[in-house]
Design a protein around this nucleic acid. Structure first.
Lengths: 117, 117
DNA sequence: TCTATATTTCGAGAAACATAGAATCGTCAA
DNA sequence: TTGACGATTCTATGTTTCTCGAAATATAGA
């Protein structure tokens, strides 16, 4: 991940409403949540929520798919992982005892090996 | 970590200059880097850098200590870990195969057990 | 087609943020 | 005490972001 993308992702999350939405979607998992339901759960106006979802989507932190009249949003786990990895990159210059738990997230995708970690 | 603290931390990082400084300090480790050296490394004006370091410090992402005439800044690894944990809290609602590598960072501090992870 | 539902886009005013010049504070050495 | 150096604080200006009302778009069903 490059600096501008990281800043965009962090800026997207640096907002109470958007952070709440993102965490809701992280908890929701792969099925996702409809925009209207997010609005109800967070108590935000539809237009404001739509703007914020657009910002999250532009940063790659959420993805949208249409289902009938609803638009379902899901968390972008891959982008999230990239962001966390970017934040702790080259941590501690060779002193893993400080940030091993941070670096763990920087490792490759969620495969069977990682699951036992 | 609570929402306002998380937003403050993310806002602090959502800025190219501050993000660069923070990553520099993450790489530098526990010894830290003097403000002047940071300014030289990042090409920022002393007053602008000072403001940005103050914002990072207020968010708990960096700590400062004086050494003679210099002020040495170090990354706040604990706060960083709290932030990452907050972001992936309750991830996937019971589907660890999606976000086990994310959750790894959410686990407790950097003790001997975690090091082997 | 007509209507209702779901969501997005547009526009404007208010608030917050970023930057840099100038002045100030703290430390060290002579 | 004086001067030099490192860093911060103050202040002003320009830019960006946030929010909400109003209007527009898209889909589904009668």
């Amino acid at each position: 991940m490059e600096m501008p993308n990281a800043v965009a992702a962090l800026s997207a999350l640096a907002h109470p409403g958007r952070l709440e939405v993102f965490r809701l979607l992280v908890r929701a998992g792969a099925e996702g949540v409809a925009a209207g339901e997010i609005a109800r759960a967070t108590g935000s106006l539809p237009n404001t929520l739509s703007t914020n979802l657009g910002i999250l989507a532009a940063a790659g932190l959420v993805a949208a798919r249409r289902e009938g009249r609803s638009i379902i949003y899901t968390a972008g786990y891959d982008r999230m992982r990239e962001l966390l990895a970017f934040l702790v990159e080259d941590c501690c210059g060779g002193r893993p005892e400080i940030c091993a738990p941070l670096a763990a997230v920087a490792s490759a995708g969620c495969d069977a090996e990682a699951r036992s970690c």
